[in-house]
Write a protein that binds this DNA or RNA. Structure first.
Length: 597
RNA sequence: GGGGUCGUAGUUCAGCUUGGUUAGAACGCCGGCCUGUCACGCCGGAGGUCGCGAGUUCGAGUCUCGUCGGCCCCGCCA
C-alpha cells in the first residue's frame, strides 16, 4: 500500500486559476475529469473544478502512473500532485484561461469513481431539460450553471451589503403562518396538534414587514422565499425568492431612490452602467401606448388611437363597434409591407386567441391600399396619415372594447419585437406608477385589490372610495426592465379606519375582517408610522443579469412546469399513519402517476 | 382548466407526410493501435419495451383515441 495520500497535503490552487506565473511551482489539485485524451504513451486529462479547467499530463516516463491513468474515466474525482510547466508555442490553447500552462503529474489518486453518465457534461448543454432536472447535480456541474449560481451568490451579497449600509436590518419572518383569503392560492401545512387547522406558507411576508415598521425597526429587508400555488411559466416557480424591503417615514420617492441605487449596484456586477433616475410612466399611459403594464421600452412601436378617425370613415363594421363604446386602435409595423399572407393569417389567429373578434391589416402600394377591409381610398388615406405610417409599413387595426384592443395590440407589439434580435446589453428600466387600487374580477364577480389590500389609495381619491372604487388610484408602483416585471410595491395604509374601509369595499364583513386580519387591524391602532416598501423578484433579476430566459436556470433545484421535482420525485404520497397523525383523509387521487398502485 | 409542441439506443436526434426487408446517425460506452492532444485520430464492437395502454389493419415507430411526462402560451399568479 502507498504510505501517504495526496489528501494529506493541502490543495494549493483551483484548477481554473493556474496561470503562467505559477510555472515551476509544485501544485496539488482536486477535481473532476472533464475529458481524457489518450494518445497511447501520453495521456492528457482536463481536470475541472469550480474555477475552471487545467490540462494535466501523464507521460510514459512514469510507467506506473500511465497504467493507473488508463483506467480513469469521465467524471472520476482525482487528486493530482505535479509541477506546472509552460506550454510551447503551438501547444497553447487560447480558448482556455489556463491554456498557457499544463501540469506534469508526479502523483495521482482516484478519490472517487463515476458510473457512465446519463449525459455528457458540456456547455452548451446537449441534454433535454427533463434530463437536466432528473440529474440536477450533474447539470449543475456545467460551467454555465456554476457561473449562474455564483452570480446569484454575489448578487445576494451586494444586496445585503448595500441595504446594511442604508440602515436596513435583515430580519426573518415565519414560514408557518396564516392563510389569507386574497391573492394567490396558499400552500397549506396541516397542524398535527390541531387537527383540521392549517398553517399556510407565506405568499410574501407582507404583514410581518409592516408590523416591523409598527415595532419601530424603521427599515427592514429580507432575501426571502415566497410560495404561491399557481400554474408555472418560464419566469414563475411555486417557490421563489424576493428581496423584500420596507421603510418607515418614507414616501414613493424614498423607495424609488434606494431601489434604483441598489439596482445600479447589482447591474454593475455584469459591467452594465445604468443611468438614473429611471424613467416613469403612469399605468394609464403605459396601457394606452404599449397595451401592457410591463412595457419593453427597447421596442419603439407604440399603439395609436384612431377612434376619432374611425368615426369619420365609412365602415359599418367599425362604426358599430365605436358606437357601442368601443375604440379603434392601431399599430404600425415598420417594413411590414412584405409580410406574407400566411404570416398575416397567423397574426389574425393570434389576435383571436387573445380575445379580439378580428384584426384589420392595411398595406399601401403607391396610391392604392390593400386590406381585407373595404374602404374608400380617402378613408384609407386618413388612417394612413393619422398613423404616420411610412411607405413600406403595415398598419394593424383592432376595433373592440378598449381593454381588449389595447391588450391584443400590446401582445402583437411584443411578438413582432421578439422576432428580431434583441440587444442583451441594453437594459431599459421603467417605473409604472399610479395603478388603480381595485379591479373587477369577472371570475369572482367582485372587486379585488390590484396590488394587495394594504396599499394606500391616493389621498385625493379617498372621498370616492365607496362611490367609484374603480376610479380610485393607489400609491402603488412596479419596476419593469425590458418587459419583465422585476418588482412591485406601495405606500401602505397606516390607520385602522382606512384599512377597514378598504376591506369593506372588497366585500369582507366585520366578522371576516376580525377573523383574518384582526391582529393586524389592532396593530394599526397603536401608533403605526407612515411606511412603504417594495419587493423585488430576486430570481428574475439574476436571470436578467445572467442573460438567461428562464428563472429555472438561476435556481439550483427548480420545479417543472407542472410543479414536480424530478430529482426527488416529489410531491409524493405519505404513509397512512402520517396522514392520520395530521387528521387528513384523501378523498380522491388524480394524475395516476408512479405513486399510485 | 384550455391550446400548441415534443417523447425512437446511455444521450441528442433522423425515420412518421405516403403503414410493409435486419429501425439509422452522432456523441457517450467497451476492446485494440497511437508521445503533443485539447470536440485528439484511426480500426473494431456492444447497445432499442420506438413513453405507456387500447383501437384500426393481414401488418403500426408510422394512422386513431386515451393516458403519463418535458417545454411554450392562455386562464391563474393580491
Amino acid at each position: 500500500m502507498k504510505s501517504k495520500s495526496i489528501l494529506r497535503g493541502k490543495r494549493t490552487h483551483f484548477c481554473g486559476e493556474l496561470r503562467k506565473k505559477d510555472v515551476d511551482k509544485e501544485v496539488i489539485l482536486f477535481g473532476w475529469v472533464n475529458r481524457i485524451r489518450d494518445i497511447g504513451n501520453l495521456i492528457f486529462i482536463d481536470l475541472r473544478d469550480r474555477e475552471g479547467l487545467a490540462q494535466v499530463v501523464i507521460s510514459s516516463e512514469q510507467k506506473d502512473l500511465l497504467g493507473k491513468a488508463k483506467n480513469i474515466r469521465m467524471e472520476y474525482v482525482l487528486a493530482v500532485k505535479g509541477v506546472v510547466k509552460p506550454r510551447e508555442e503551438g501547444m497553447k490553447n487560447h480558448e482556455l484561461a489556463t491554456g498557457d500552462i499544463e501540469v506534469l503529474v508526479k502523483e495521482m489518486e482516484v478519490l472517487s469513481q463515476s458510473e457512465t453518465l446519463p449525459f455528457v457534461i458540456s456547455d452548451p448543454v446537449k441534454a433535454t431539460e427533463e434530463m437536466r432536472f432528473k440529474y440536477r447535480y450533474l447539470d449543475l456541474r456545467r460551467p454555465s450553471m456554476q457561473k449562474n449560481i455564483r452570480l446569484r451568490h454575489r448578487a445576494a451579497l451586494i444586496v445585503r451589503n448595500f441595504l446594511d449600509k442604508k440602515g436596513f436590518y435583515e430580519i426573518e419572518t415565519p414560514f408557518l403562518t396564516k392563510s389569507t383569503p386574497e391573492g394567490a392560492r396558499d400552500y397549506l401545512v396541516p397542524s398535527r396538534e390541531y387537527k383540521g387547522r392549517f398553517f399556510a406558507l407565506p405568499q410574501s411576508p407582507q404583514l410581518f414587514k409592516q408590523i416591523f415598521m409598527i415595532s419601530g425597526f424603521d427599515r427592514y429587508f429580507q432575501i426571502v422565499r415566497c410560495f404561491r400555488d399557481e400554474d408555472l411559466r418560464a419566469d414563475r416557480q411555486p417557490e421563489f425568492t424576493q428581496i423584500d424591503m420596507e421603510m418607515s417615514f418614507a414616501g414613493q420617492e424614498d423607495v424609488f431612490s434606494v431601489t434604483e441605487e441598489m439596482i445600479v449596484c447589482l447591474f454593475d456586477l455584469i459591467g452594465a452602467r445604468l443611468s438614473r433616475p429611471f424613467p416613469r410612466l403612469t399605468y394609464e399611459e403605459s396601457m394606452e401606448r404599449f397595451g401592457t403594464d410591463r412595457p419593453d421600452l427597447r421596442n419603439r412601436m407604440e399603439i395609436i388611437d384612431l377612434t376619432d378617425t374611425g368615426l369619420r370613415i365609412d365602415s359599418r363594421i367599425i362604426r358599430s363597434v365605436l358606437q357601442s363604446d368601443g375604440v379603434l386602435k392601431g399599430l404600425v409595423v415598420q417594413n411590414g409591407k412584405n409580410l406574407s399572407r400566411s404570416r398575416l393569417d397567423k397574426v389574425e389567429k393570434r389576435a383571436r386567441g387573445l380575445g379580439a373578434k378580428g384584426i384589420i391589416w392595411i398595406k399601401k402600394e403607391k396610391q392604392t391600399f390593400t386590406s381585407p377591409l373595404r374602404l374608400k381610398n380617402e378613408d384609407f388615406t386618413q388612417i394612413w396619415e393619422k398613423s404616420k405610417a411610412g411607405e413600406d409599413d403595415l398598419i394593424l387595426l383592432v376595433a373592440d372594447k378598449k381593454e381588449t384592443a389595447l391588450r391584443v395590440l400590446g401582445e402583437l407589439r411584443t411578438d413582432f419585437f421578439y422576432q428580431e434580435k434583441t440587444d442583451s446589453t441594453d437594459f431599459q428600466f421603467v417605473w409604472i406608477t399610479d395603478f388603480p387600487l381595485f379591479e373587477w374580477s369577472e371570475d369572482e364577480n367582485k372587486l379585488v385589490s390590484m396590488h394587495h389590500p394594504f396599499t394606500s389609495p391616493k389621498a385625493e381619491d379617498m372621498p370616492e372610495l365607496e362611490k367609484e372604487p374603480l376610479k380610485v388610484k393607489a400609491d402603488a408602483y412596479d419596476l419593469v426592465v425590458n418587459g419583465v416585471e422585476i418588482g412591485g410595491g406601495s405606500i401602505r395604509i397606516k390607520d385602522r379606519d382606512t384599512q377597514e374601509r378598504i376591506f369593506r369595499v372588497l366585500g369582507l364583513d366585520e366578522k371576516e375582517q376580525e377573523n383574518k386580519f384582526g391582529f393586524f387591524l389592532k396593530a394599526l391602532t397603536y401608533g403605526a408610522p407612515p411606511h412603504g416598501g417594495i419587493a423585488l423578484g430576486f430570481d428574475r433579476i439574476v436571470m436578467i443579469l445572467a442573460g438567461e430566459e428562464s428563472i429555472r436556470d438561476v435556481i439550483p433545484f427548480p420545479k417543472t412546469t407542472s410543479s414536480l421535482c424530478l430529482m426527488t420525485d416529489s410531491p409524493s404520497e405519505v404513509d397512512e399513519n402520517r396522514l392520520k397523525e395530521v387528521g387528513i383523509q384523501i378523498i380522491k387521487k388524480n394524475k395516476g402517476g408512479k405513486n399510485d398502485e
